[in-house]
Design a protein around this nucleic acid. Structure first.
Lengths: 68, 68
DNA sequence: TTGTATATATCGCAATACGATAAAATTATG
DNA sequence: CATAATTTTATCGTATTGCGATATATACAA
């Protein structure tokens, strides 16, 4: 299972969803969906913007957790 | 820019594209596209399978490289 | 050469992102 | 508490894109 940790990075950067929205250029609705892991896919362009905005790596935002 | 490093992980695991294809369950054509970074998006389900097959994290396969 | 592995291309369909928008829900804040 | 600000959720429409199926091309061994 892939877990999205945008919320963790937002906390770490002390950044609001609103600010991330402005930086990334998506609608707030979609940023929210993304943040809460309610997407089934992601465009690399979008991931790129997120990493740039949060100054982080994809690995900070995406996590694989096997079931055990 | 987001770089896909599936090829790096394949080398590290000494795994062929053919074997990855079998494990992941996609067609070889698509695995090849993926491996060579010729996709514009990726389903989390697919990323999940790749991480499972290569026993790695998304961060091992996806890399953000800012331009500088 | 002959086979095997990998890459590239095209077509079609289904899945899904994303925008726009509205409404609900949550969380500050006075 | 009241009200504003923020965030979440939902719906609809469109555009994008994954992915399968398939064929062909290329690379690479034996």
């Amino acid at each position: 299972m892939i877990i999205i940790n945008v919320d963790v990075m937002l906390a770490k950067r002390k950044m609001s969803v609103t600010e991330l929205t402005e930086r990334v250029g998506l609608t707030m609705a979609n940023v929210s969906l993304l943040k809460n892991g309610k997407v089934k896919a992601i465009r690399l362009e979008t991931l790129n913007k997120i990493c740039a905005a949060l100054n982080c790596q994809p690995g900070d935002v995406l996590e694989y957790r096997g079931d055990s």
